[in-house]
Simulated scan of single mutants.
Amino acid sequence: MDVKKLKRVCVLGSGGWGSVIARIVARNVLCMRRFHPKVTMYVFEEFLDGRKLTEIINKEHENVKYCRGYKFTNNLIALSDPVEAAKYADYIIFVTPHQFVDGLCKLLYGKIKKRAVGVSLIKGFEKKSGGGIDLISHIISKKLAIPCHVLMGANIASEVVAEIKHCTSTLGCKNRKRGEVLKDLFETDHLKISVVADEDTVEICGALKNIVATGVGFVDGLGLDNRMKEAMLRLGFMEMMKFVDLFYPGGRLSTFFESCGIADLIVTSFAGRNRKCAAAFVTSGKTIKELEKEMLNGQMLQGPPTAEEVTFMLRNEKMTDQFPLFTVIDQICRGQKEAKELTKCIEENILKKTYCPKNLKA
């Protein structure tokens, strides 16, 4: 087969999840005839004991900062220049904090293949100047003039890389044929991928569940019982459904029961970094930024900034009263209310009538 015709893959991002996905993709392409064996990975350059992180990855085939103890196959090449990493790629996988997407797209515009395809694994939103928010996949698609699909799911990077069984994820892809190709690119014996066409709902679930997980962390930090945690999850899940129903009509109710929905909400709320840091926020008296630096080894939280982005939109729409849980979590994160106010919010809303979606399809 002509090597020049083989499809190339690039991973933009090398944190915990980015490294795990790059490791999977680099392994998988070696067994797939349609893909070029070389996979590039953009790495934000850091120095560890006087050595460049890209140099360590390329020589030792291990990301010793974010994925220590797990080797990459030799076909994964780390690069510190995102343009160099992505310029020949047919499939560009985005796995950076959502705050960096705009700048990354500006660097890449006009310097990638016109027929490239994006896949976003990024959880979060971006504020619009008019008062609303935009989905990360939409931003990538608009700014780079390429289609962009999404991959979200109930998985923790450390569990996926350790090949613990029954890890799952949901690929949102409207193009059926392309969805089958991407499923093969990401799936392993231990990470199973389901494909749905409901791209927006998949992505929104992936972002909003981090807000709810932050609230669960507050519950833990306050030392409240499991009844309050259950109420927190139930109310949070209802607000997730209501958000899609009101602002993104046309989504499917069934998507909430995929890996990207209720499953991801549960996993993140019990084992994710948003829950962990939110609990410490209550008990330590430190700020979110201080805890991020102390506890996350260079990674970033997504729950607090996503809560701020969502309530920014809700305030402009004059709808904060319809999303009391999202609103109070944002206020607590920003120091406008004490964490104990969450208890009051839960107790005031738990007995209200369960939300019944109006626009979600079966």
Rank of each mutant, 00 (worst) to 15 (best):
G15W: 06
N74Y: 11
K174R: 13
M1S: 13
I262K: 08
K128E: 14
L360Y: 02
G179K: 03
H36A: 06
V196D: 14
R178T: 15
F243D: 10
R27L: 05
L76D: 12
C167R: 12
F72H: 11
K183H: 02
G303P: 00
K361V: 12
I139S: 15
L224P: 01
P305L: 11
K337C: 01
A213D: 05
E60P: 03
A86N: 02
H36V: 03
V117L: 03
Y88E: 15
E60G: 02
G131P: 08
K7E: 15
R273V: 07
K71T: 00
V11D: 00
E290M: 02
C333T: 02
Q331N: 10
K209F: 06
E347H: 12
G110N: 14
M1Q: 04
E159H: 11
T96W: 07
F256E: 08
A154G: 14
I329H: 07
C260K: 12
D102E: 13
V64D: 06
T214V: 01
T96S: 01
V39Y: 13
G272E: 11
G13D: 08
V9P: 02
L121F: 09
K4S: 15
L79I: 12
K59P: 03
M240D: 08
R334Y: 10
M240T: 04
I136Q: 10
M1P: 06
A278P: 00
P305F: 10
I139K: 15
K143I: 02
V20K: 01
N155K: 13
K209S: 12
I77Y: 08
G261S: 06
R33K: 13
E199W: 04
K123S: 07
I329T: 06
E46C: 06
S259Y: 06
R23L: 01
G303R: 01
E294A: 13
L314Q: 09
R227S: 15
G223Y: 05
N75L: 12
V64I: 09
A22M: 08
M238P: 01
H138P: 03
K318E: 10
C31P: 00
V11F: 02
K209W: 07
D225L: 04
D264H: 08
T54E: 02
I93L: 13
N297T: 08
R275F: 02
K293C: 05
H61A: 09
Q299L: 09
E46K: 08
L12S: 08
M300S: 04
A85G: 03
S169W: 07
M1F: 07
V11T: 14
T73W: 03
S259D: 09
L6D: 03
R334V: 00
A271K: 03
L325K: 03
C10T: 10
C105T: 12
K340D: 04
L30C: 14
L325V: 05
V196Q: 13
E163M: 06
K289P: 01
S137Q: 07
F35A: 03
R334K: 15
T170Q: 07
T287Y: 01
G250V: 05
C148P: 01
I77G: 00
N74L: 00
C31W: 15
A231R: 14
T73M: 05
K65M: 12
E309Y: 07
E292N: 09
S194Y: 10
P147R: 09
G251A: 00
G285L: 04
L79D: 04
G16C: 15
A280H: 09
A213N: 07
V219F: 11
H149F: 10
D225H: 02
I24Y: 11
R178D: 15
I346V: 10
G13R: 09
